[in-house]
Nucleic acid binder design. Structure first.
Length: 229
DNA sequence: GACCAGGCACATC
DNA sequence: GATGTGCATGGT
């Protein structure tokens, strides 16, 4: 087994033993997962939760049709806590138009579309970039794709697997080529990375108890502050 | 009050 | 093709 592959499996095993199954994505329905994927762009999840709670209270997130029917300014008001609310309202609208038009009101047609084709189509939707597309593919549609996020970049560049300034697709390939293409694995791995990142790899994060604490690993802080030798 | 968070589109060079 | 900028709230 190649070195990178061994490393990625080893990290996964450490994270899984430490954190356990993550049960992602945090959302009740497929539509809710997709909406959450857009709302969480460059935004803390706690703020997204407030926005989704507003959408639930309004009853509009029950179906694509209902969500499509609310006006842009009302939608923006509901998702206000998630930040960038004007931009995100527009992005949600574009996404809903795509889902409804291409996949049908219940998204039933999705099963007939190959993952690669669906990814290309998602990337063509205004407001859906590579990370959001992969999040939707993996967590809403159960497709085996790896989601690369800011934590992935930060953590694995810190550990020397990547330099960190590669483009999204390059990093994604590193993971997809070195791991078996299993939806379950990709689902859990990304969730574990976010868990690790939130707790140990951002400002004011604690140093103690990091599952990757070992001689060769840097961790903590945006810029490495701790190095256990 | 500064800094940050599970990005993306668009302008400019 | 690379780099910079606007978008905005809520928590630390």
């Amino acid at each position: 087994m190649p070195k990178s592959s061994r490393f990625l499996h080893s990290v996964y095993n450490k994270l899984y033993s430490s954190f356990g199954p993550q049960g992602w994505w945090p959302g009740d329905t497929r539509l809710e997962i997709i909406v959450g994927a857009i709302l969480t762009q460059n935004t803390a999840w706690s703020n997204v939760e407030k926005a989704i709670a507003n959408l639930k209270r309004s009853g509009s997130i029950e179906s694509i049709s209902k969500l499509k029917s609310i006006g842009s300014s009302r939608l923006a008001g509901l998702i206000r806590p998630a930040g960038y609310y004007n931009i995100k309202a527009k992005r949600l609208k574009c996404c809903l138009d795509f889902l409804h038009g291409r996949l049908g009101p219940d998204m039933r047609k999705v099963s007939s579309i190959k993952t690669g084709d669906l990814r290309k189509e998602l990337l063509g939707v205004h407001g859906i970039g590579p990370e959001t597309a992969d999040s939707i593919l993996l967590y809403a549609f159960g497709r085996p794709v790896f989601v690369v996020d800011a934590y992935t970049r930060r953590i694995f560049s810190r550990h020397g697997l990547i330099s960190g300034d590669e483009d999204y697709e390059t990093i994604r390939e590193v993971f997809m080529k070195n791991l078996s293409s299993e939806e379950r694995l990709f689902n859990e791995y990304h969730a574990l990375i976010v868990n690790l990142g939130k707790n140990f790899c951002r400002p004011k994060a604690r140093c103690e108890g990091c599952p990757l604490d070992s001689a060769k690993y840097y961790f903590c802080k945006v810029k490495p502050r701790c190095k256990r030798a």
